[in-house]
């Protein structure tokens, strides 16, 4: 099983690179998860991450990309620029929430 080293602690990751224990998520962990995807987090990334985490806290599921654009107000094009090469899982992985279950 893959692990992610954050501040001297090895966190367990599943086959898709998601945290096995979501309680281990922190801003530092998000930075490291993003680094693994060659993303360096900007304020705009944090807006997306905070929206996703808030959604998850309220609804116990990750928002689909469409909800991030429609409700979170991040345009589709920008979302693909912020999280290139497959934002579908990447956004949730970095935000430390489960894989999104919707189709759009």
């Amino acid at each position: 099983m893959a692990t992610l080293e954050v501040a001297g602690t090895a966190l367990e990751l599943d086959d898709d690179g998601f945290l096995v224990n979501m309680d281990e998520w922190s801003k530092e962990v998000a930075e490291e998860l993003a680094k693994a995807d060659e993303i360096s987090l900007t304020d705009r990334h944090w807006e997306v991450i905070e929206f996703v985490r808030k959604w998850y806290a309220e609804k116990d599921e990750s928002p689909t990309l469409r909800r991030i654009t429609k409700v979170g107000g991040i345009p589709t094009k920008e979302l693909y620029q912020l999280f290139p090469d497959g934002p579908g899982k990447k956004v949730a992985r970095i935000a430390g929430t489960p894989k999104p279950e919707g189709c759009v």
Binding site: T64, R66, T76, Y80, G102, V104
Partner: peptide, 18 residues
Amino acid sequence: GLDIPPIDEFIEMIHDAG
């Protein structure tokens, strides 16, 4: 109800998605 957009909006969305 499934939050899937109508066709014209869907086309805009996938175009923006590349």
